[in-house]
Amino acid sequence: MTVSYASQTEIVRGFLARTYSWMSAGLALTAGVAYMTAQNEGFAMQVSQLYLPLVLLQFGLVMGLSFLAPRLNSVMAGMLFIVYAAVTGLTFSSLLYVYSPDAVISAFLSTAGAFGLMSAVGYFTKRDLSGMGQFFLFALLGLFVAMIVNLFMGSGLLAMLISGVGVLLFAGLTAYDTQKLKALALSGISGEDAERAAVHGALALYLDFINMFLFILRFFGIGGSDD
């Protein structure tokens, strides 16, 4: 049975609408938790004292969602995603003490614009981006190594270079993940599998957005941090 172009478009839009709704909800929760935490100095102090355990919890949650997604039902996957977004909000609350409000807002708006543009590229491009998956994997590993090295070197120039590469890398990943989700929708996925895939896809896009935001924030934070 041949599916018309109009039907294919409707299927893709429906799946991506659920995916982006999950991602948007996660971002809104992260921002809300970060803001409310930063407004309460006593609670913010407690969060700062638990920063390492919270980061480890973040890592555990994202690994669980990434690798156990095929075994989780959509409800459990959704709950874990929401918990992850909330915990990320707690750890991100410290950014509101390090960077000025103008820097945070400017970085967020810039990230939203870049993310939207690269999502559109991934959706509309005719070029097959699937072959770039291995490149992005090695680029992420290289970026991680460079960040570790710079922890010991403390080079401002290398930090700027890392931030620039990070922005470009996660912009590319945004297009790559969007195209992959579009292809997934066209594969005929439906029902519970589609709902679970929407949450998993939302996590991928959420991570693209968050990481791009962090790297862009470093640029806007120059000369604008609160000492």
Rank of each mutant, 00 (worst) to 15 (best):
V75A: 12
L184E: 15
F135W: 04
R127Y: 08
T174P: 05
P70N: 05
M212T: 06
T125M: 11
L68F: 11
L72V: 14
S110I: 15
Y99Q: 08
V121E: 07
I216K: 03
A44M: 02
V121F: 05
D102K: 07
A198Y: 01
I216S: 15
V3Q: 14
L158I: 13
M45E: 05
G221V: 04
T178W: 00
N40S: 05
R196H: 00
S7Q: 15
A77Q: 12
M45G: 12
S190N: 12
A86K: 07
A69G: 09
L141T: 01
Y5N: 14
T88W: 04
T9A: 15
H200K: 15
S187D: 11
F213A: 02
L184D: 09
G64E: 01
A6V: 15
Y35F: 13
F215T: 12
M36E: 06
L96Q: 12
G221M: 03
F59P: 06
L217G: 10
L184N: 13
L52A: 14
A31V: 15
I11R: 14
I162W: 08
I11H: 10
T2A: 07
S21N: 13
F67C: 09
Q39L: 13
G113F: 15
A139W: 00
F144V: 14
Q179C: 06
N73T: 13
I210A: 12
I105R: 13
V165T: 01
T111S: 02
A202Y: 06
A175N: 03
I210Y: 10
Y20F: 11
F67K: 03
S106R: 05
G26F: 07
Q46H: 11
S163F: 11
A202Q: 11
T178Y: 01
